[in-house]
Design a protein around this nucleic acid. Structure first.
Lengths: 170, 170
DNA sequence: GTGATGTGCTTCGGATTCGAAGCAACTGAG
DNA sequence: CTCAGTTGCTTCGAATCCGAAGCACATCAC
């Protein structure tokens, strides 16, 4: 009944659905582990991990939001929550008075470290177990390319407030 | 600083992050398109699509929830919303009095059809554009295997209310 | 049949989410 | 300097989400 005007073959559909399903299932499982091990939501974990990954242990709010694909207001909420728990600190930036720099605390690093082993265990059991070495390599490569492409492709019909990269030479 | 007790090499990490990032970005983009084209949330689209895919156009509530990886209560909410909009009907099942069968309506199929072309366009532009034919095939294969594995692996430490498949032969 | 347990769904309460609007600091042109 | 436009973040309101608890039917043992 559903006519198929612009085609999309079975393989493509399969890839799409598998992507969505797999990421949903994985996220769900990981979420539970994080909740149990350190009382963290997935976003909170992502934020701490992102900060921990940074050489300085800190990032601007906006960059954090972009990094984890989250709304600004949502990030404000989560940052406040994390700050209340003492896992991060928020300090106004010196060069730009509006900007706020979020920094992971020792406590934050501790929670992160406490949660990480279990996190990895879940990944191994659920995601990597059924995959071969080369499967994983291919997956990493292909998905990274897709991600990069999406990152640089502006959201069809640019929003009122453009992104930062708008080096429009017109 | 973060010691790395149970290893997880760069490739694995890359695959994991790419998976999460790519699916987040894609979901986000698709969500916007669905909102514009048919005022549907992503879950609502998934539900309609799942129903539309069924030979009978209907499914049990629980199966729907499992299919789209959603909480039961969340599904109740969405099913009510969709019913109010006339996109689905909900009727008690005949063989099991507790069970409710959700069925997509003509109106629902219409909305689905109206939204589909744009949906596919987004997929083509964002996900498939930078990928080769064989990339897509591999992606479909690998992710399908991962998904199947996660589907059949019970959530580490089975919950109070077990899943249906517990054919424990002990 | 009767009770104990399991299963399907909903209700409830609280937490999270987002977009729109608002505020404050920056930037550039005149 | 001063104004307009931009950018960084927060507040606000409304929608959505989940888990725990509850209700009703089903199933199984006795």
């Amino acid at each position: 009944m559903t006519s198929s005007p612009p085609p999309l073959d079975a393989t493509q559909l399969g890839a799409y659905f598998a992507l969505i399903e797999a990421s949903s299932l994985l996220k769900h499982a990981v979420e539970q582990q994080l909740r149990d091990a350190g009382d963290l939501s997935y976003v909170q974990f992502q934020l701490l991990a992102t900060l921990g990954d940074s050489p300085t242990g800190s990032r601007r709010m906006t960059d954090l939001a972009d990094g984890v694909v989250y709304s600004r207001s949502g990030l404000t909420y989560q940052a406040q929550t994390l700050e209340k728990r003492g896992l991060v600190t928020r300090t106004p930036s010196s060069d730009d008075e509006r900007s706020i720099t979020v920094t992971i605390s020792d406590e934050g690093r501790a929670v992160l470290a406490g949660v990480f082993p279990g996190h990895i265990a879940v990944l191994d059991d659920l995601l990597f177990a059924p995959l071969s070495r080369s499967d994983i390599e291919t997956l990493a490569d292909v998905l990274a390319r897709a991600r990069d492409h999406m990152r640089q492709t502006p959201p069809r019909s640019a929003e009122p407030r453009r992104r930062k990269k708008t080096a429009d030479p017109s």
